[in-house]
Every structure is written in structure tokens, then in C-alpha cells.
């Protein structure tokens, strides 16, 4: 019979957390920022089809970093949760808060019970009628949930990106201004001391949640992905550095 070595719960949790952090730290950052026009989501992503940003419901979007298969399964589960709830209750009854708490429970259960924690970090964003009604929830691999205001950055070099963004971001930005600010600060997303790297539209994934999708596009679905040509014109218009 093999002898099980005693490992203290503190050590076990710390090892798991370190493992998950390492996996997440390898990925590029994703920025979610609220502004006057709605919520802008900006990510560095060379793949045009394997998305880091996704639509969950009418006014709710999803952003993730980490292992693709893990956050993609979480995104699909989120879409199912939202669609079932909206179908059996009403469309207004689907909220980011409800979804975020389901995610938190799942992530928490996987973190403690499964052989390996999810190496992901998520943002659930809901755009409101007014900026005060916006909701941004940040979820980490262990199931902790944080209600953020204004802007969230997830991923490896999040701190560097946040400090770059603090100066250029305010609540009154339009979408083009917010996207330019986001892209500019993502360019600082490198190892400490490395020079900023330039990001072109083909390695960027950008989506927005329109505050008034009904009046701007005649649709109740606020989520819209920006295609490369549109992104190109946004980035060049502002004399991007």
C-alpha cells in the first residue's frame, strides 16, 4: 500500500492557485472599459475565428483569458444558462449578476474538487441604459468574484496595462476614443522593461456593447464585433501613436 503524504490545505490551495496563475500569466491581456457610448472590449488575438470576446445575451458580453478550451466551454455554458432563463422567464430576467454568480460557483467547485483548476480569468459585462447602470464582474480561477467599476483588465500583464490606461480613460469617452485608449495601453503589455509593441488591426479583436442598440441599429442585441476595416479607420483617425 502506498503511503499518502500529508499536505496541508493551505499548501494545496497555494499550489493550485500558483498553477492557475502561471497558465493565465502566459496569455495576453484583455481590456473591458465602460464609456459614454457603452462598453468596449479590446483584446490582442491573432486568430480571427477563435474568439476571446463573446456575446452572451441582449446586453451581456463575455471576455476571457487563459486556456481556450476551458473558457470556451464556460462561454457556451453561459449562453445556455442565459437562453434557458430568458426563454422560461423573460428576456429582462437575464442579468450579468445572475450569470456571474453561476460562473463563480462553477469555478469555485472546479478549483477545490477537480484534479486541476481552470486556468482562466473572466469578465462578465452588462451595459445599462445609463453609465451608472453598467455592471462589470471579474471572475478568477478560484471562483472569487469582484464587482468592478469603469474598467477591468485581465490577463498576464494586467497591472502594466491598467497603469497605462488610468491616464487616458474617463467615463465620457466615445467608442473610438475608448478603443484607441485600450489599444494604446495594450501595447505596453509586455515583460517588464520591454519596449511597447505595435498592434495592428489584424491581431486585435474588438467588440462593443451599444448602450442604445434599439435606436442605433434597430436591434435589442447590444453586442457587435468590429470588423478589421472599421477598426483600421478608428485607429488611424485619431493619429494613433
Amino acid at each position: 500500500m502506498t503511503q499518502q503524504f500529508y499536505v496541508s490545505p493551505e499548501q494545496l490551495m497555494k499550489d493550485r492557485a500558483d498553477f492557475a496563475r502561471k497558465g493565465i500569466g502566459r496569455g495576453r491581456s484583455v481590456i473591458v472599459l465602460a464609456c459614454r457610448d457603452g462598453i468596449a472590449l479590446v483584446a490582442e488575438n491573432p486568430s480571427p475565428s477563435l474568439h476571446k470576446l463573446g456575446e452572451i445575451y441582449d446586453r451581456i458580453a463575455f471576455a476571457a483569458v487563459g486556456k481556450y478550451n476551458e473558457f470556451e466551454s464556460l462561454r457556451q455554458a453561459g449562453v445556455r444558462y442565459a437562453d434557458v432563463r430568458g426563454y422560461s422567464y423573460a428576456r429582462e430576467d437575464v442579468t450579468a449578476r445572475g450569470l456571474a454568480s453561476v460562473y463563480a460557483q462553477s469555478l469555485g467547485a472546479v478549483f477545490t474538487a477537480e484534479s486541476k483548476p481552470f486556468e482562466v480569468e473572466l469578465v462578465v459585462a452588462e451595459v445599462g441604459e445609463t453609465p451608472a447602470e453598467d455592471h462589470l464582474y471579474r471572475l478568477t480561477f478560484d471562483g472569487s468574484i469582484a464587482d468592478e467599476t469603469g474598467l477591468v483588465v485581465i490577463g498576464g500583464a494586467a497591472d502594466a496595462v491598467v497603469s497605462a490606461l488610468r491616464d487616458s480613460w474617463s467615463r465620457d469617452l466615445t467608442f473610438p476614443e475608448a478603443i484607441r485608449a485600450g489599444v494604446a495601453s495594450l501595447q505596453n503589455d509586455g515583460a517588464a522593461g520591454q519596449p511597447p509593441h505595435r498592434l495592428t488591426p489584424d491581431v486585435l479583436e474588438v467588440a462593443v456593447l451599444d448602450r442604445q442598440p434599439g435606436t442605433t441599429r434597430g436591434s435589442r442585441r447590444a453586442f457587435r464585433r468590429l470588423a478589421a476595416p472599421e477598426l483600421e479607420s478608428i485607429l488611424t483617425d485619431g493619429g494613433d501613436t
Binding site: 466551454s73 464556460l74 455554458a77 445556455r80 426563454y87 460557483q105 462553477s106 467547485a109 477537480e114
Partner: peptide, 26 residues
């Protein structure tokens, strides 16, 4: 949303139909 066994996850991931999902889970 907590994963069960691996095979179940794969088959779930393969389904894109809302009606099928309802038929199975609700």
C-alpha cells in the same frame, strides 16, 4: 455547469441546438 465525465462534456459541446439542450436538461 460543473463538468461531469469527459465524454458528457464532449457530446454537450457538440450540440448547438437550444431545443436539444432543453430536451435533455429541461
Amino acid at each position: 455547469m460543473i463538468p461531469e465525465d469527459a465524454a458528457a462534456i464532449v457530446s454537450r459541446a457538440a450540440s448547438t441546438s437550444f431545443a436539444e439542450h432543453l430536451g435533455r436538461d429541461h
